[in-house]
Write a protein that binds this DNA or RNA. Structure first.
Length: 206
DNA sequence: TGCCAGGCCCTCTTTAGGGCCTT
């Protein structure tokens, strides 16, 4: 489990909760190693049922597109190989973690690696951002974009660039040589109020 | 047909409520 590689992932789904029968319809993921995007994974998935007009409008993914897509089980099996051995990151990770774990469970697999959240990290690293949704953070931090939002690979790539940007921000602001996944995860788990003191303490530690 | 989550975070808080964030 390398400290310096993470898989940043994003799901498009039929709704908000796998416990209510919602399923994944697209996964996008980027492998980040040494703060570089070095590999990508993307696939639509056929959930075996029609998706709502809201989801079609929100994502641009249509029922016609999903009809031609491979089944979820097949894609998730491939993706479990892609993510193997890497820590995981997502924006509002609780959402993607629930879907990842639910879809893996359906194919008899289980996630073992740690999951970190770029949204929780951004609330601590960019407390003055006007909003901490992905699109607002992309604009706030001047991340290049082709204007595509709410598609899995585009969102995963932007989240990966946001993650790299936050690591670089910490390196610069606190004169750190390296910022590990563990540090990012700890920063996200401590209360937002105590984050500034925590970071100052890290900066003083050689 | 109608309904629909979960966790963080703030505050007019802790015997709670509501906005944000993800689709």
């Amino acid at each position: 489990m390398g400290d310096y590689s993470v898989v940043v992932l994003d799901f498009e789904t039929t709704g908000l909760s796998p416990d209510n029968g919602d399923r994944a319809i697209e996964i996008g993921a980027v492998l980040v190693r040494d703060n570089q995007l070095v590999d990508r994974f993307q696939s639509l998935m056929n959930p075996g049922k029609r998706i709502s007009l809201f989801i079609q409008d929100y994502t641009g993914i249509t029922n016609a597109m999903l009809k031609k897509a491979p089944p979820i089980d097949e894609v998730m099996d491939e993706f479990s190989n892609f993510m193997a051995g890497h820590h995981l990151v997502a924006h509002n990770a609780g959402f993607d973690r629930r879907f990842l774990d639910a879809e893996l469970q359906r194919i008899g697999k289980r996630r073992t690696q740690e999951f970190a959240c770029s949204m929780l990290a951004s609330r601590r690293i960019y407390p003055d951002a006007p909003s901490h949704n992905l699109e607002a953070l992309v604009r706030y931090t001047d991340i290049a974009t082709d204007g595509t939002f709410h598609r899995a690979l585009a969102d995963a790539e932007m989240t990966a660039r946001l993650w790299i940007g936050m690591i670089n921000e910490l390196k610069t602001a606190y004169r750190l040589r390296q910022v590990s996944f563990d540090l990012m995860q700890r920063l996200s788990k401590i209360s937002k109020a105590s984050a500034p003191a925590y970071l100052s303490r890290i900066a003083e530690t050689p």
